[in-house]
Design a protein around this nucleic acid. Structure first.
Length: 492
RNA sequence: CGGGGUGUAGCGUAGCCCGGUAUCGCGCCUGCUUUGGGAGCAGGAGGUCGUCAGUUCGAAUCUGGCCACCCCGACCA
C-alpha cells in the first residue's frame, strides 16, 4: 500500500482531504486558498458542466461572458449586494510593476501606475452584468433576457477547504431579466428545479429544496431559494442557489423597458449558480475509506479493462479480446479505458482505479479467454462477479444504471435516517450532538431567535422546505406559535 | 483575524532538548525474475533541513520575522 487514506470514523475532515489529494482531484497551490484542479478532478467537473449546460440550453438560456473586473463605482451601485461582499473582495489598484532599484532581480508595484478607479475582482457578476443589460433592454420585445456564464470568481475567504470553499472557484451564474414579477419568480423556481434534478439524477445526491430565511438571503435578493444536501458526517452543504432579485438591480442600474401598454417599467431579475463546491458534495456523498466513488453518469471513464497475462504473447492474446469488448461497450455509448500498460501490475491497477472511483472494472486474463468469461467488479459495493463475454454490453449497461440508482438510494436512505424532528430545545440540542443531520423544528420566524440558536448550537436554518406541510406548533426556542417546521443543521 | 499544532528527498519520517553538514520506509531509475488484489532480489540516483534574518569558528538543531498547511473559534450571499 503506497497510498493510505484516513478512515471516516477516525478523522472525517482528514479523510475528505485525503480523497481529494490521493484520488488526484485537486491539490493546494502556491497561492493561499487557491487550488489546482488536476485532470481527473477537472474531467468530472467537465461532465457536470456538460450536463448542466444542456439543461440550461434546454430551458432557453444562452451563454455569454462578462469581464473579471468590476469598476468600484459599479460594484457599489446595489448597496446591499456591495455591503454583503465588501469584506471578501480582492481589489486591483495598479496596472504595472517595475524593477526594484534597491533590490536587484526583484519587482515592486510601480507607484506611478495607480489606477484612477480601483477594479474589484468579481465575487459575483450582478453589477457588471446589470450595467451591461442597461444598454440591451429598451422594450418588452427585448425580454426575457436569459443568459448564463461559466466563469471563475474570487472571494477572499479566511478559512478555505479544497472544493468546499476556495478563494477562487469555478462556477456558472445565470442572470435573467423579465418583464413581470411572476415570470421572474417562475424562472427562479425553474432553475432551482434544474439544480435539484441535476443533483439527484446525475450526482445521485438527494437534496431538499427550500427558501432561505432573510438573514441567510443573498445580498441584494428579495428571495433566495436553495438546494441543501446532507453529507456522510451529518453536516449540511448548500449545493446551489437561485435568487429572485426583484427590481433591486434594475433600480440600481436604471434598467427600464417600455411595456406593451407604453409604460416605462423596471425589469425583474433572477440570478442562480452552482460551483465547483458540487465536487465536494459528490465526494462526501458517495466515497468510502477506499477512496472516491463516482456515479456512472458523471464518471469521465465508466469502465476500465485490466488485462492479466504472462509475457508479450499473453498480452497480445488478451488484448485481442479486450479490444473487442471495448468496442462493444463504446458502441453502447459507454466510456471505456483499456489499461494495457506493462509498467504496472494488475493488483496495483485494481487499487488505483478503486481509489480514483471508476464505477466498473473488468479484469480479463488467459483463464477467462479459455472460459469465455470476464471478472466484473463494481466500485460502489466492492463486489466481483464472473460473467460470460457474449452479452457483456447488455450486462454492463444495466450495471451502470444499477450503480447510479444504488448510490442515490443509499444517499437518500442515509439522509432520511439522519433527518429528525425536535419539539423541544433540549431535544434539538441532543439530536445535533448525538445523531447529527437535519433537524426539523418549529421556529417563531424572527431573526433574533435564529441568531440565538446559531450562537448557542452552531446550527443554522438551512431552509424552509418548499414541500412543507402546514402544522401548528410552538417555537423550540421562544415558545411562540409557529405554523411550520424549518430545516436546521450544522453546515459546511 | 485570534488560540493551538506542524513544516527535514516526490510522500511519510528519525535527528532538534544537549550546535560539528542528515536516519529509515515508500516511491523513483537500471537489470533480471514476475504479473488473478498495491511483486521479489541486486545495484543506483535524489537534500539550499519551509523561508528570510540574527547569534556562533560552525545552525536542521538556538533566537526573531515571514510564509504555507492542519485543528478550534470568528467569518462564510
Amino acid at each position: 500500500m503506497s497510498k493510505v487514506i484516513s478512515s471516516r470514523e477516525e478523522d472525517y475532515s482528514k479523510w475528505y482531504n485525503d480523497i481529494v489529494v490521493e484520488a488526484d482531484l485537486a491539490d493546494h497551490s502556491a497561492v493561499r486558498g487557491c487550488m489546482v484542479i488536476k485532470p481527473h478532478g477537472y474531467a468530472i467537473w467537465e461532465k457536470m458542466q456538460g450536463a448542466l449546460d444542456k439543461m440550461f440550453k434546454d430551458t432557453g438560456h444562452v451563454n455569454a461572458y462578462f469581464p473579471l473586473f468590476i469598476p468600484k463605482s459599479l460594484f457599489e451601485a446595489e448597496e446591499k449586494n456591495a455591503e454583503g461582499f465588501a469584506k471578501e473582495c480582492a481589489v486591483v489598484t495598479h496596472y504595472r510593476l517595475k524593477t526594484d532599484p534597491s533590490n536587484k532581480g526583484k519587482l515592486i508595484v510601480d507607484p506611478e501606475a495607480k489606477l484612477e478607479e480601483e477594479l474589484i475582482v468579481r465575487p459575483t457578476s450582478e453589477a457588471i452584468i446589470w450595467n451591461t443589460y442597461k444598454g440591451w433592454i429598451e422594450s418588452y420585445r427585448d425580454l426575457p433576457l436569459l443568459i448564463n456564464q461559466w466563469a471563475n470568481v474570487v472571494r477572499w475567504e479566511m478559512r478555505t477547504r479544497l472544493f468546499l470553499r476556495t478563494a477562487e472557484f469555478l462556477w456558472q451564474e445565470g442572470h435573467t431579466a423579465h418583464a413581470t414579477k411572476e415570470e421572474a419568480i417562475i424562472e427562479t423556481k425553474q432553475m432551482l428545479d434544474v439544480y435539484a434534478e441535476f443533483a439527484e439524477k446525475w450526482m445521485a445526491v438527494p437534496v431538499i429544496k427550500g427558501v432561505k430565511t432573510e438573514s441567510e438571503r443573498f445580498a441584494g435578493a428579495d428571495d433566495t431559494y436553495c438546494i441543501e444536501a446532507l453529507m456522510q458526517d451529518g453536516k449540511a452543504l448548500q449545493a446551489g442557489t437561485s435568487h429572485f432579485l426583484g427590481q433591486n438591480f434594475a433600480k440600481a442600474f436604471d434598467v427600464k423597458f417600455t411595456s406593451k401598454e407604453g409604460k416605462l417599467e423596471y425589469v425583474w431579475a433572477t440570478s442562480w449558480g452552482v460551483s465547483t463546491r458540487l465536487m465536494g458534495a459528490l465526494i462526501m456523498s458517495h466515497s468510502d475509506d477506499k477512496g472516491l466513488v463516482i456515479p456512472p453518469m458523471l464518471a469521465p471513464t465508466q469502465v476500465v479493462i485490466v488485462p492479466i497475462y504472462k509475457g508479450e504473447e499473453g498480452l497480445k492474446k488478451v488484448s485481442e479480446v479486450a479490444l473487442v469488448i471495448k468496442k462493444k461497450l463504446q458502441d453502447k455509448n459507454i466510456s471505456v479505458k483499456y489499461d494495457d500498460r506493462d509498467t504496472q501490475r494488475p493488483g496495483w491497477k485494481f487499487a488505483e482505479y478503486e481509489l480514483k472511483g471508476y464505477p466498473i472494472r473488468i479484469a480479463l486474463g488467459e483463464r477467462d479467454l479459455a472460459a469465455g468469461t470476464v471478472e466484473i467488479a463494481r466500485r460502489d459495493l466492492l463486489s466481483k462477479e464472473v460473467i460470460r463475454i457474449d452479452d457483456i454490453e447488455t450486462y454492463v449497461s444495466k450495471l451502470l444504471v444499477d450503480i447510479q440508482s444504488n448510490l442515490y438510494t443509499k444517499a437518500l436512505e442515509r439522509t432520511q435516517n439522519m433527518t429528525h424532528k425536535a419539539d423541544t430545545y433540549a431535544d434539538f440540542k441532543k439530536i445535533l450532538d448525538e445523531k447529527t443531520g437535519f433537524v426539523l423544528a418549529h421556529w417563531d420566524g424572527t431573526a433574533e431567535t435564529e441568531e440565538k440558536i446559531k450562537a448557542e448550537t452552531k446550527a443554522t436554518i438551512r431552509c424552509i422546505p418548499l414541500n412543507n406541510v402546514a402544522e401548528q406548533g410552538i417555537c423550540i426556542y421562544s415558545g411562540k406559535p409557529s405554523t411550520q417546521r424549518v430545516l436546521f443543521a450544522r453546515a459546511y
